[in-house]
């Protein structure tokens, strides 16, 4: 039983990371209908920025994280304005190719600048465990979970209670009507990319201490995030978070109790989730259809 709870807690922590990246995917997809395949590589790249600031420039870890988030926001905004905006009206295939191109660019750039060497990344949380009723809970896991939870809460409040948040939602729902009330929709889309990049950076910073930093570290995480987003509903922010947590816990339990899956077949299980959800319930678990009277 202790093992079961331990796996659940660990699953919630990895699930929280999937959730953060899935939320980034959902934010961009809701606003522009684009699936940003480069979300994971952008996260990896920004994590390297944090690493460089700490290792090469001697910055305090927390300060480095803060600078990294600002950098990530700028990166997201800049990419939208320079690369994505010109192909706004192009076909889906074009945007897919462009974001895949970004994957290669960020991956290559990271290798070029920081080499493919695997590096240790400092964890913001102590490497201790709490033992509660025979269940060992890693503080790293708890910290990861809480950080993502707090981030999601802040984002939710931002979207729900601020004027820019309202304009961001409006731009995603109905860009034409938004322009008519004076919302600068182009900039709202850019801000959406910025926020998504910030979520990605947090996911990267939380991933790196356990899987170590290398240019390919986010690739598997991105697949899990896709599975989480599809599971929850690609247009549902709540679904992305719930999907991420469900997937994290589910994969951990399957890996532990289904012998032939183990650790090595987790990724195929995630792909299976994507496949099954798309076949059975394409809107995902929380993708909702709004009732409308015409």
């Amino acid at each position: 039983m202790a093992e079961f709870f331990q796996q659940v807690v660990a699953g919630l922590a990895s699930g929280a990371i999937f959730a953060a990246l899935a939320l980034a995917l959902v934010l961009i997809h809701r606003a522009t209908g684009v699936i940003n395949f480069a979300q994971g590589e952008m996260a990896m790249f920004t994590t390297y920025i944090a690493w460089t600031l700490i290792e090469n420039h001697g910055l305090n870890m927390w300060l480095a994280f803060a600078v990294t988030l600002v950098f990530a926001f700028g990166l997201g905004v800049g990419l939208q304005r320079t690369v994505i905006r010109p192909i706004e009206r192009a076909s889906i295939l074009t945007t897919v190719i462009v974001t895949i191109g970004l994957v290669l660019i960020f991956n290559g750039l990271a290798g070029l600048i920081w080499s493919a060497e695997v590096r240790a990344f400092p964890s913001p949380f102590p490497n201790d465990t709490w033992v509660i009723g025979g269940v060992a809970i890693s503080q790293q896991d708890v910290g990861t979970f809480l950080v993502v939870l707090a981030l999601v809460a802040i984002l939710w409040a931002f979207f729900q209670f601020t004027k820019i948040g309202l304009a961001l939602r409006a731009s995603a729902l109905n860009p034409d009507a938004s322009r008519l009330v004076g919302v600068r929709v182009g900039w709202m889309l850019a801000i959406g990319w910025g926020l998504a990049a910030v979520l990605g950076a947090v996911a990267g910073i939380l991933t790196a201490p356990t899987v170590f930093l290398d240019p390919n570290m986010m690739q598997a995480v991105l697949i899990y995030a896709f599975a989480a987003a599809v599971l929850g509903g690609i247009d549902s922010p709540f679904g992305a978070v719930a999907g991420g947590l469900m997937l994290g816990v589910g994969l951990n339990l399957i890996g532990t109790y289904v012998d032939f899956v183990g650790a090595s077949l987790r990724l195929p299980v995630a792909l299976l989730v994507i496949l099954v959800v798309l076949l059975v319930k394409p809107a995902g678990l929380f993708g909702k259809t709004v009732t409308r009277r015409v």
């Binding site: 409006a170 729902l173 109905n174 034409d176 009507a177 008519l180 709004v290």
Partner: peptide, 13 residues
Amino acid sequence: AHVPEGRGTFAEM
């Protein structure tokens, strides 16, 4: 202020 054809209200809001 332009109230367009089809009203342009935000149905989901």
